[in-house]
Design a protein around this nucleic acid. Structure first.
Lengths: 91, 91
DNA sequence: CCTTTATTTAGATAATTGTCTAACTATCTA
DNA sequence: TAGATAGTTAGACAATTATCTAAATAAAGG
């Protein structure tokens, strides 16, 4: 897990909105794109960024590609966060 | 708290290293800069980014400016993370 | 096969970012 | 008040990023 890639991925509001959608249910690239006022290639690029950061997973189903959250990485980042705010409390 | 500013701030390895230092103890800008193979203005810029994201606080003490962590924002981000990995578990 | 639908890849462009050097501001002390 | 020390601000430049349009790939159905 690369913290830099993960935080870069999370630093964009559109990508966080995609994550918010995927929290509710797995979705196809097309269905995700429909939710945004942005061209499909741009959403595809955001999905690729999320995937490189290992925040989402994808699986092809016929013509569709279905995206889902990979919660493992969220947990890893939370650990890092907890370590930061934990150490501080030791002061 | 702006999630975009916070994640952008965390997306840089130097800034995360600064946070790691500040976990251990509050430090002056100069002492922080000494730890990196980078000119002072660059570190100053990174500190400014961290401060804009409200991840660190600063206080002048004579000639020195002392930086410290602001753990409140870390907690806020953790909440957001927990919400993501929590919802997923409801599937 | 040919067409349609779903999605990605390529290439262009404007905006943002990280780093540097040079110059500035603030504080202390002799 | 002049000089030294601590730190920031300004301006430049190369690298990265977010978006777009156009073209390419993949799968399904006639």
């Amino acid at each position: 897990m690369s913290a830099t890639l993960v935080f870069k991925a999370l630093a964009d509001p559109t990508r966080r909105a995609i994550i918010d959608l995927l929290k509710e249910q797995d979705m196809t690239a097309g269905d995700i794109a429909e939710q945004f006022n942005m061209k499909k290639p741009s959403i595809s690029h955001h999905l690729s960024t999320l995937q490189t950061a290992e925040l989402v997973l994808s699986e092809r189903n016929g013509q569709h590609i279905i995206y889902s959250l990979n919660t493992t990485v969220f947990q890893d980042i939370m650990m890092w966060m907890m370590n930061v705010s934990g150490k501080e409390n030791e002061k």
